[in-house]
């Protein structure tokens, strides 16, 4: 453990409103919840912030509900709650698949959907699901609430439109039809970081999202368009390979990611016929 605790500060709001007003007054506050990413950074001594806002006890952000026709999942919903939710199982089973594979029981019990979004890793396992589901990120500040589609939420590697005085409060997933499909390719069978992760929906215009193949999670509009127009899968796979921009890193190679992403598209297509 290389993190230094002395000198860190933590604010503990008891409600969402209190949290938002604290953030308005002090934009240097960094929200924390399940800490499954943040405390890893603390351990490595790479935590840059020194002032934190503990959201863990704000239960109003743990609600899973139908809101109009959309599925609304509160930002503090843990993977465990997602896995156990009948509503999610019915509406967004691919999110359950993603949540199951995100880590062991200990991570399921603590990690939150909002945290996965806020952390913004291109390997975040729920992000392709949300992108393929056309999810909207609901953000709130002390003054206003705004909604941004997940596909427009990220502006670059670990960068997003979220402002320092805003919190992610929920994700809304509109109703849609079509077979859902999810596949994670990690460095081992459990407790792994994704080398390629794909979520897709087989609908008249297929929706395909990939993680770990670009600086952010991406949708593949050209590939989707080709499939919609009836292009053979092999051609769609070629388009996909051009549409992504994977890199070599310590976990995998650019070539592997490209090939596997293409293979996953083929598998998705074959399995959802």
């Amino acid at each position: 453990m290389k993190g230094v605790i002395a000198g860190l500060e933590m604010r503990e709001p008891s409600s969402l409103d209190e949290a938002l007003s604290a953030m308005r007054n002090d934009p240097s506050l960094v929200p924390l919840a399940g800490c499954t990413d943040l405390y890893v950074a603390l351990n490595f001594g790479t935590l840059e912030s020194t002032r934190f806002l503990n959201l863990w006890s704000i239960d109003e952000l743990r609600v899973i509900e139908k809101s109009n026709d959309a599925l609304s999942i509160g930002a503090l919903t843990t993977y465990k709650s997602i896995i156990q939710s009948k509503l999610v199982r019915k509406r967004l089973p691919m999110l359950i698949s993603a949540a199951r594979e995100i880590g062991g029981a200990q991570i399921h019990n603590r990690g939150t959907l909002g945290g996965n979004i806020a952390n913004g890793s291109p390997a975040g396992d729920t992000l392709p699901v949300l992108a393929a589901a056309d999810a909207t990120v609901v953000m709130r500040s002390a003054d206003a609430e705004r909604r941004v589609p997940l596909t427009q939420f990220y502006t670059g590697y670990r960068k997003s439109v979220l402002r320092a005085d805003e919190l992610i409060v929920a994700v809304e997933i509109p109703s849609f039809s079509g077979k859902q499909w999810f596949r994670k390719v990690g460095t081992r069978a459990a407790q792994a970081i994704s080398k390629v992760v794909m979520a897709a929906v087989r609908s008249p215009r297929p929706r395909i999202a990939l993680g770990s193949v670009a600086p952010t999670v991406i949708r593949l509009p050209m590939t989707e368009g080709a499939l919609e127009e009836g292009a053979p899968i092999q051609e769609a796979q070629r388009i996909l390979m051009d549409e992504i921009s994977p890199i070599d890193d310590m976990r995998s190679t650019e070539e592997y990611r490209r090939r596997v992403a293409s293979n996953l598209l083929g598998r998705f297509w074959a399995e959802t016929e």
């Binding site: 499954t36 405390y39 880590g103």
Partner: peptide, 26 residues
């Protein structure tokens, strides 16, 4: 210290967690 090995597993309200990833305040 990364939540990978589970050696620090304890129960909070009967749910298993990695104690290395939990701030005391929680």
């Amino acid at each position: 210290g990364e939540g990978e090995c589970g050696a620090c597993t304890v129960l909070i309200d009967d749910a298993a967690v990695c104690a290395c990833l939990v701030p005391f305040a929680q």
